[in-house]
Design a binder for these strands. Structure first.
Lengths: 180, 180
DNA sequence: CACGGCATGTAATAAGTTACATGATTTA
DNA sequence: TAAATCATGTAACTTATTACATGCCGTG
């Protein structure tokens, strides 16, 4: 499962442009797979070469042409196969936790900042996931699972980080306590 | 924060061989950063070129020479700088969640399998983290944070997946219910 | 005697990130 | 008038993955 296959996945529920697909990544995949234009556009080109998608050029008034991609039969089949053969890996790469691991080498203020930054990221993710759950248009009930999965984890982590931050501030010098 | 810097991080608390460093990744970094020999050995070579580490060859009886790497002053400084300048990213790439997102295209049995596989991975991770917490030799109290962080999330996810699996089985055909 | 652990590495490939490059439209 | 959105893409770079290549030791 790479960007290419996820693009096929998006296209399996209807035609879309590269730009649309990017938006779909943002709204539905963000919590488990990140991709930018720099990986989506090349992916679509390769899918086109391989005959997994077809493209239709739409002229627009004053805006650049839109390229609408449409999945082919071969594309559907390839996606199905990829789905069936994919091993359900789940990887985390966290520079945040690396930083925390070596927090004894850092000034307390910086650790506190990192905690704050991470906390607000978690909170934003939680809000996005909750809103997505509310806008139920996305609920192909598989989408539900991945959203709830991330929500469960995110909520638990917010509580944890909040608690650790308090502890951390209590153990630090007063001038930092003031900052927070 | 990449493999190179994490190697420096390991070496900042004492000399080690590439093999040792790999073991350290397994035992302490696994839950937030994965690296194999294929990235660790080249990383050490580059660190050597850059003068951030020094190496001493140890001859061993009947075993291949051991190369003991030792961090230099410049290495410590570079690590410190990297630590101070690193942005606390936290990225998840999950083929498991991708699979679940498109679970409506898969046979129920395969979804159930993926759920089982993921669940046992989570349980294993939980056990490892709990054991690491028990063996307190690793507790440079920064290590504590990252372990607890992952533990909190993992425990919440185990509960969630357990619940979802039951629901999923209840909604599926009886022959699958038997399997599980 | 097979398997896991000890011990090092390279080479080919795949993959993704970042910055660059352009430019009109809409909204605050 | 500044910023966000729409819309496409390329090129250079960095990074990590995978498989390959070797070989001894200890344990069951």
């Amino acid at each position: 499962m790479d960007v290419k296959h996820l693009c096929l996945g998006v296209l399996s529920s209807g035609p879309a442009s590269g730009y649309d697909i990017k938006k779909h990544f943002e709204s539905s995949f963000k919590h488990f797979f990140v991709a930018g234009y720099g990986s989506i556009y090349p992916a679509l080109s390769r899918l086109l070469e391989q005959g997994y998608v077809e493209v239709e050029r739409l002229q627009q008034d004053r805006l650049p042409d839109k390229k609408i991609y449409c999945i082919t039969g071969a594309g559907r089949k390839a996606f199905q196969t990829a789905l069936e053969n994919s091993v359900p890996r789940h990887k985390i790469r966290s520079e945040f936790l690396a930083m925390m691991h070596f927090s004894h080498l850092l000034p307390a203020a910086q650790v506190c900042d990192a905690l704050d930054v991470h906390l607000s990221e978690l909170q934003q993710l939680r809000d996005n996931l909750e809103q997505a759950a509310a806008d139920k248009k996305l609920s192909a009930h598989g989408g539900d699972f991945s959203r709830h999965y991330s929500l469960v984890s995110t909520k638990a982590l917010i509580d944890f980080v909040l608690g650790e931050k308090s502890k951390f501030i209590a153990n630090s010098s007063p001038n930092i306590a003031v900052k927070a």
